[in-house]
């Protein structure tokens, strides 16, 4: 999963940073009285900054194109699911949802085909996070009143998917969930 590699990457970075700091600290503890410290610190700082900027520049240019806003933008979705979030439940329907009397259906989605969710909220801000059968987030968007967010995704594994609310919406926030089937 993507999350595991993120955690691993973070741990590696954190450990590296810690090692550097511990090493610097030990060098201070062990140092003799009246040592001059680092020579040419100014030049080194410059290179340090430059390298960091370049590394982050590369990082940004690699990650930015992977942004989700235009995922599957070129494709025509096989199915459109309308989503209305309301304290504290989700309504999923293949037809558009009447805000005055929202109702939902049991949803079954096709495998390996692009599906579009049109997500909105009928009251406050909600989240719309899709969890795979192993309960890991695969994609998400926010449900904002007054706006419709279009979230496209291609499910590649069959099973029961959970939808959880990821924006605090009131005391019922943790029970706000629904499921759908992919097969």
């Amino acid at each position: 999963m993507k999350q595991d590699s993120i955690l691993l990457f973070f741990c590696l970075l954190a450990i590296t940073a810690t090692i550097v700091f511990v090493w610097v600290f030990r060098s201070s503890i062990k140092a003799e009285e009246r040592t001059p410290g680092i020579k040419n610190a100014l030049q080194k700082r410059f290179w340090f900054l430059l390298i960091l900027v370049v590394v982050f520049g590369i990082f940004a240019s690699v990650t930015l194109p992977k942004s989700p806003y235009f995922a599957f933008a070129e494709e025509v979705p096989a199915k459109v699911i309308h989503v209305a979030a309301l304290q504290f439940s989700f309504f999923l329907s293949e037809k558009s949802i009447d805000p005055k009397s929202p109702s939902g259906d049991n949803i079954e989605l096709p495998l390996n085909k692009v599906v579009e969710f049109r997500v909105t909220s009928l009251d406050v801000n909600h989240g719309f996070a899709i969890y795979n059968p192993q309960m890991r987030i695969v994609t998400q968007t926010q449900a904002m009143p007054g706006y419709i967010n279009r979230l496209r995704y291609k499910f590649t594994k069959p099973g029961i998917y959970h939808v959880l609310c990821l924006e605090y919406c009131g005391v019922g926030h943790p029970v706000m969930q629904t499921t759908f089937i992919v097969k």
């Binding site: 933008a73 070129e74 025509v76 007054g146 706006y147 419709i148 279009r150």
Partner: peptide, 15 residues
């Protein structure tokens, strides 16, 4: 023309 709009706004009267 298959131009994709990630989101659109619902009309509101007094906003």
């Amino acid at each position: 023309n298959n131009a994709y709009i990630p989101s659109y706004r619902l009309p509101a009267d007094n906003d």
